[in-house]
Amino acid sequence: MEIKTENYNVIYDETSQNIIFDGSLRLNGTAEYASISELLNNVAQQEPEKIVLDLKELSFLNSSGISILSKFVINVRKRKNIQMVVIGAKKNPWQGKSLKNLQRLMPSLKLELE
């Protein structure tokens, strides 16, 4: 599963169970985020043991995007047995703050900031 565009890519690597985001995501509202939501929900539905959300190369995510990630974390949390890891990078200013909310939504979530 993958979504590739000029400005951003979202790729799910099934063997490593990594969901890799890169580029800059500035889509307008839930409607424009629908395909990304669908990809994320498909991953959650498969209930892998572990999901790694790799956001190291995602330089920007707007509030609608953060909301989409939050919904995804809530969805994963409901399924109880999935271990969740979010990898960010300090070079992306938005992550230090916004990724904290994900951890609050799911206290077992492991947040790694490189």
Binding site: S67, S70, S98, K100
Partner: peptide, 13 residues
Amino acid sequence: VDTIDLGFPIGLE
């Protein structure tokens, strides 16, 4: 003044 630790999105949880 950072407000991240002062609250949470309203209506999400």
